[in-house]
Simulated scan of single mutants.
Amino acid sequence: MRIGVVADTHLRARHSTLPKALVHVLTGVDLIVHAGDWMDPSIVRLFESIAPVEAVAGNNDGEELAARFGYRKVLELAGFRIGLVHGDGGRSTPDTAYAAFCSSDSAHDSIDAIIFGHSHIPYEEVRHGVLLFNPGSPTDKRRQSLYSFGTLELGDTIQARHYYYEDKS
């Protein structure tokens, strides 16, 4: 199973397209997972035109997105349990995301991976056997030099990959 991983799009309703580099890689994925901060419910349709979407709302999303997606969930995909959360609310975004699903530094509560966003910083770490993955942002790079997003390949293991690009048109 191939999953597109996105977070922190921060797009308003006036946007009618997604970046070409993002669409190119996401075309053909089985599922798109979005870790919040859509900013506008209309943006969901842009992603749904590519593939089915699973998501959570972020701290910049309104009531409609929060009611539709919630703020935290566990996806069961291809035999893996994947936690999905935006990651806001703590000093360290990876630590906040990890704590949302794992009760201690040695127990991972049957979670294989955690997808999160919030920081706009691409991130990948395996902590106590749990993959922590932040795709960065495909449209709001902030202090990062490049826009980014990711994919997960679910097979015998989980393989994560970041994609980077300069032009968000």
Rank of each mutant, 00 (worst) to 15 (best):
G136T: 04
G90E: 01
V130G: 06
F116S: 05
P122V: 09
S137Q: 05
C102R: 12
S106T: 15
A100N: 11
N134Q: 03
D95H: 05
L132A: 08
Y98A: 08
S104Y: 12
D105P: 15
D109E: 15
T96M: 01
S137I: 05
S110C: 10
H120L: 07
E125K: 06
I111S: 10
H108P: 13
A107K: 15
H120D: 06
A100I: 08
P138M: 02
T93H: 03
C102E: 14
H128K: 09
Y123P: 06
S92C: 00
A113R: 09
D112G: 13
D109M: 15
R91Q: 01
P94Y: 03
H120V: 08
L131I: 12
R127Y: 02
F133W: 00
A100R: 08
H128I: 02
H118E: 08
Y98D: 09
P122K: 10
F101Q: 07
A113H: 12
A100T: 09
K141T: 07
A100Q: 10
Y123M: 06
V126P: 03
D95T: 04
A97Y: 11
G136E: 03
H128L: 02
D140C: 04
P94F: 03
E124G: 05
A113N: 12
G117V: 07
D105F: 15
G90M: 00
D95G: 04
A97T: 09
T96G: 01
E124R: 12
H108F: 13
I114P: 04
R91W: 04
H108A: 14
E124Y: 06
F101K: 08
P94C: 06
P122C: 11
G136L: 04
I115H: 05
H108V: 14
H118T: 10
T139M: 08
D109N: 15
A107I: 14
Y98Q: 09
V126F: 02
P135I: 07
I111F: 13
S104K: 12
S106G: 14
L131V: 10
Y98M: 10
V130M: 09
G90K: 01
F133A: 00
S103C: 02
F116N: 05
S119N: 01
I121G: 01
H120K: 08
L131D: 08
S110R: 11
A99M: 12
Y123F: 14
D140T: 03
V126G: 01
S137A: 07
P135K: 11
L132F: 12
P135V: 06
P122S: 13
E125T: 02
T96E: 01
C102D: 14
T139F: 05
R127V: 02
H128Q: 11
E124T: 11
A97G: 10
I115C: 07
S104D: 11
A107L: 15
G129H: 13
A107D: 15
G117A: 07
P138D: 03
H118P: 11
F133S: 00
D140Y: 08
G129S: 13
I114S: 07
P138R: 01
G129W: 12
S92Q: 00
A97P: 10
F133V: 00
D105R: 14
S104P: 10
P135Y: 09
A100G: 12
D109T: 15
S106L: 14
G117S: 07
S103A: 01
T139Y: 06
F101G: 08
N134I: 02
G117I: 05
D95L: 04
P138H: 01
R127M: 02
